[in-house]
Design a binder for these strands. Structure first.
Length: 701
DNA sequence: GTGAACTTCCT
DNA sequence: GGAAGTTCA
């Protein structure tokens, strides 16, 4: 029912015309104005990295040309305030409706909710849809109606839901363009001069854009998918789908992938093609992990900044800039790790297996704070994806709940013996697979050393026998290969045995701290002890790659720009908000005197962004911070203006932040419940935290 | 009812 | 490989 005015279709990470529910609904409602708003400052320190911006630029160009062939074009807006820009577009086009597809990262959840509120208040009808997932997060629950807390159970349920995911929609036949004569389109700049040279190389390997994504999908389905299971262990194989960057920007619909893969599954099942079936299941699992990452982000919106299991709060991370740099540059002395890091820097891509290798090394051997690693991935990966990367790093760090710890996490009421459970859990994650793997098994990813030789030419002449552990090679062999350890290839930055010992120490320290904190809680003493989570917020100042270690970068002027990607210093960001909210926090802490695990600065940081993304104020209601509400209240169309796609159970739901308390996720590491006390702690600690910057931290490490 | 043994689960 | 859930004597 078109009401005279046109409709805005707001594109974000759904850069496709096929199976795009928001676009389809907009087109159905009449004339359409398609809009993309570029407001990267709103992303805070998750300002997209260079390669990611390159992708976006190209993807948008393709979307625009597709829209043009259908009868309209893409209006681009450069903005520091997405919601204001939306309003501007509404006003200049006389639009009466807004259509968009859901996103699930914490910032989008807040921003989109605000957009909906603001536009609705202006009399605009807002409709939002699921275009990114097989099922919306709130559709998938266990038998008790609670969200799942373990991936496997979650995925099993997804695959056996009583109704199938929506069938993919065809692209619109044509689009009637709304009146954009008074709505200008900005020229968006996604790369500066210094970045163009590096980016030029990307185009040789990648083709962004929805139609290319579709080709990549077809290629994969007709080729590598069959061998996916067999090949996916190899670092080098071409068996990956290479769909992840396409998926990140929504150039291809997960539901389309799912449907097509399932067709293959049926065919191969009929043929009793075991390898094919296994491959399909494995590939679907990777789709499932992507779904789960959104699920986690929705249910635990702090999961990109805070461990979901509390014990890691007490892990004494090694805050060592030198280690961090060596890891980034691929100079750790572990060939497989170094090869991976150099490939990442040179190409923006890393095979999934190698991601696990380098990130495990980061967390378990170097024991650097995982958020640094995650941030570096964010800056360098072509398919950087907040939710997926958060899930991945939390997994590597062993902080993903496995479904049993849920009701004991950070809950003072629980019996001390649950500690044992944590302990073992973490020991398992840390010790078991990795050290073994590093020493003996790593080679199965790259049995012939081809991968290492490609990315570490200095090791190319080393016989395969030694290629993964040159430190064991006889001197004569090294000499013959032209290698001098410590000179043209580094000695191991940390030896395995030393790392193992240090890890044991670190873990026991962690348990002591946790026990002490627990004891303090039981005594009603405040705060407890050390909180290593205050580290990860800081990010070293000089995240500059040394140019001589960048194989693909011959131009000395192509210095990477990190200023815009810098994690704000604590002094400059957290405390500004703190000041504004000082009085409130006092109230909160008085009301919430129940002793809590101490402050989590990370939480403060998210809060800063959430409360104040790009200088827009999101109101606090009743003196509390916006909290994420997954309670059932909003299921019943608390939001009457929103209309979900056509999902039978999904109608009326838009992911929403609201001040209402009592969410399931409270059970995790004080996501909500900790806010009040955290703030008060912060306030009291203000002085000391203000002084804390990277340098100071590095001295303590 | 109770504890031992067995099963199942673990991005 | 440890712990919660289940079965069985």
């Amino acid at each position: 029912m078109s009401s005279g005015g046109c409709s805005i279709v707001w594109f974000r990470r759904d850069l496709r015309v096929e199976d795009n529910p928001a676009l389809a609904a907009g087109v159905r409602s009449g004339a359409v104005v398609a809009v993309f708003i570029w407001a990267p400052e709103e992303e805070g320190h998750y300002y997209p990295g260079r390669v990611s911006r390159w992708w976006l630029k190209n993807s948008l160009a393709l979307l625009d040309s597709s829209l043009r062939s259908l009868g309209t074009s893409l209006i681009n807006k450069r903005s520091t305030d997405t919601v204001s820009s939306l309003l501007d577009v509404v006003k200049s086009t006389g639009a009466t409706q807004l259509f968009f597809n859901h996103l699930y990262d914490p910032l989008s959840l807040v921003r989109d909710h605000r957009a909906k509120e603001v536009l609705t208040a202006q009399g605009i009808r807002v409709h939002s849809f699921n275009a990114d997932l097989l099922y919306e997060p709130w559709e998938v629950n266990d038998d008790h109606g609670h969200p799942f807390t373990a991936f496997s159970a979650f995925w099993e349920r997804c695959l056996s839901m009583p109704y199938d995911p929506e069938s993919p929609l065809l692209p619109p036949m044509r689009i009637t363009s709304g009146d954009v004569s008074r709505c200008s389109s900005d020229k968006l700049v996604f790369e500066d001069e210094s970045e163009k040279g590096s980016n030029a190389l990307l185009a040789r390997a990648w083709s962004p854009g929805w139609s290319n994504a579709d080709k990549a999908l077809t290629t994969f389905l007709n080729g590598p998918l069959l061998e996916y299971s067999k090949n996916h262990r190899k670092a080098d194989s071409a068996a990956t789908s290479f769909l992840s960057p396409h998926l990140h920007f929504g150039e291809v619909s997960v539901r389309k992938i799912f449907h097509l893969v399932r067709i293959k599954q049926v065919v191969w099942a009929n043929e009793a093609n075991k390898a094919g079936e296994e491959s399909v299941n494995l590939f679907l699992k990777s789709i499932g992990l992507r779904e789960y990452s959104r699920y986690m982000s929705f249910n635990h919106p702090y999961s990109h900044e805070r461990p979901l299991l509390g014990h890691l709060k007490f892990f004494p991370w090694v805050v060592d800039e030198g280690y961090f740099k060596a890891w980034r540059q691929g100079r750790t002395g572990y060939p497989l790790v170094d090869a991976g890091m150099r490939e990442l820097w040179a190409t923006g891509w890393l095979h999934d297996r190698i991601r696990v290798v380098v990130s495990s090394f980061f967390v378990k051997v170097l024991q650097l704070p995982w958020r640094w690693g995650m941030k570096y991935f964010w800056d360098t990966l072509l398919d950087a994806d907040l939710e997926s990367d958060a899930l991945g790093w939390q997994y590597i760090s062993g902080t993903i709940p496995d479904g049993r710890e849920v009701d004991r996490i950070d809950n003072p009421q629980n019996s001390p013996r649950s500690l044992v459970g944590y302990k073992i859990q973490l020991m398992k994650f840390h010790f078991h697979p990795f050290f073994f793997f590093l020493q003996f098994e790593g080679y199965k990813f790259d049995p012939n050393g081809e991968y290492v030789r490609r990315w570490l030419p200095e090791l190319a002449r080393l016989p395969t026998e030694w290629i993964h552990h040159p430190w064991n090679a006889p001197e004569s062999v090294l000499q013959a290969a032209g290698i001098e350890l410590g000179s043209n290839y580094p000695c191991t930055i940390v030896e395995i045995d030393a790392a193992k010992a240090r890890l044991e120490e670190a873990l026991s320290e962690m348990w002591q701290l946790e026990a002490a904190s627990r004891a303090a809680l039981e005594n009603g003493t405040d705060e407890g002890l050390g909180d290593s989570e205050s580290i990860p917020i800081a990010f070293p100042d000089d995240l500059q790659m040394d140019l001589d270690y960048e194989p693909e970068r011959n131009n000395a002027n192509t210095v990477r720009h990190y200023e815009d990607q810098m994690v704000p210093s604590m002094a400059s960001s957290v405390f500004r908000v703190e000041d504004e909210e000082a009085s409130l926090d006092l109230q909160n802490s008085a009301a919430d005197s129940r002793a809590e695990v101490p402050i989590n600065l990370v939480n403060q940081e998210l809060r800063r962004e959430v409360v104040n993304p790009g200088n827009m104020q999101i109101g606090r209601i009743n003196g509390t911070l916006p909290q994420f509400n997954v309670s059932t209240g909003m299921r019943n169309g608390e939001d009457s203006t929103a209309e979900s796609s056509s999902s039978s159970s999904g109608r009326g739901i838009v992911p929403v932040w609201s001040p209402s308390a009592s969410t399931y996720s409270e059970q995790f590491v004080g996501e909500e419940s900790g806010i009040g006390t955290n703030s008060s702690y912060l306030q009291r600690q203000q002085q000391s935290h203000q002084l804390m910057n990277w340098r100071r931290l590095s001295q303590t490490g």
